[in-house]
Amino acid sequence: MRRCARRGVFSAALMLALPWLAVASAPAHAADDYPNRPLKMIVPYPAGGTADLMARNFCEFLGRELGQPIVVENKPGAAGQLGTSLTAKAAPDGYTLGESNAGTFEVSPHLYKSLPYNLQNDFEQIAVMGRMGVVYGVSAESSIKSLDDLVREAKKNPGKLSFATPGVGSSNHLSGALLASTAGIDWMHVPFKGVAEFLPAVLGGQVTALVDQYPSMMKQLEGGKIRGIAVSTAERIPSSPNVPTFKESGYPDLVFYSWFGLMVPKGVPAPIVDKLTNASRKIIHNPDYRTKVAALGAEPSDVMRTDMVKLIQTNSQVWKKVIDDNKIVVDK
């Protein structure tokens, strides 16, 4: 009887433990067959721009690594806040990916009193897909031939020269402001919704210059419609060797990059996050991927996970100073 009693107690305890064991092992099992259906990536900017190009290129390779197609969904609006919010609210099952970027994570916190998500707590950063320089350009018909010409004209005519970017509060907007505070010039920011809108204004002479990520402008530079007068990379970009760096032009501190990354909503099971991380690492070191990134006018980057968080924290303080120095106000 005693043996039966002990066996009964053990059986009852095991039955009580089984549900807990099932729950505890669920995340691990969830990753075993992940993914077993197509995924989607939410890009918070319009089709055709640098954000879109980088996302589609990366998803092509990530889909191969994971064995499932990845559909890119462009959800522009509210300076990237709409698409980023949709990522934050998505089910944390690993089937909705998001695109993080410098503007949203490094700049927006200092421009808006409140955001529809918590940048620290609502996302898990996976990998930087690529980084790129910011190019300053003018119409090929412009009398401005160099950065020196631009600065000289801006000092002669304070507040008269202007620069176009794809939106207020974007990293490109801040890049134009960074030149203003560094060179001691006063020029006017003219925001547009994207390249398709501001390019005609620059070519037509309504706006003096443009400030945008290099991949968006590469074809215009190669086609001779836009004259590049400076780029923010440490060295000249091989595909546009005639565009000098800021360092060469007398501004050694103006070396900075924009970037786009892969992220997921917070709460995705750790084994799935690890699978995405490992797949991303393979992609970033894939020679074919690196060639395609270079063809887009960008550079591959091996910054991942906690290093991404550190990158965001460091750069965020740089842009905060630019915002404060230039008294840039978006959300009063």
Rank of each mutant, 00 (worst) to 15 (best):
L161Q: 12
V107C: 13
Y214C: 00
T245Y: 08
V134G: 00
A102F: 04
H285S: 11
F61V: 03
D186P: 02
L16R: 08
I70W: 01
W259H: 08
M41T: 09
R6V: 06
K145I: 02
G297F: 14
M41I: 15
S100E: 05
E60P: 00
G223D: 12
V168R: 11
P44R: 10
L254V: 03
D122R: 04
I42C: 09
L199W: 00
H29D: 09
T182N: 09
G261C: 11
Q68K: 13
F123W: 01
N278M: 14
V255W: 05
E197S: 11
K160W: 04
V207L: 04
G63R: 07
G184H: 07
V268D: 00
G176Q: 06
S280C: 04
L21R: 06
S301P: 09
S85D: 05
G133V: 14
H110K: 01
S114W: 09
D93P: 13
N242F: 06
A22I: 15
R6F: 01
V71L: 15
M1C: 07
T306M: 01
A79S: 14
R305Q: 14
G223Y: 03
A26S: 07
A47Y: 11
K160R: 14
D253G: 13
G184V: 10
F246H: 02
S175W: 11
P27E: 13
G297Q: 10
N121I: 01
S85W: 07
T314R: 12
A230C: 06
D212V: 10
T96C: 07
P46R: 09
G224L: 07
P191W: 10
P46D: 00
K320Q: 15
Y34E: 04
L296I: 07
L199N: 00
G49H: 05
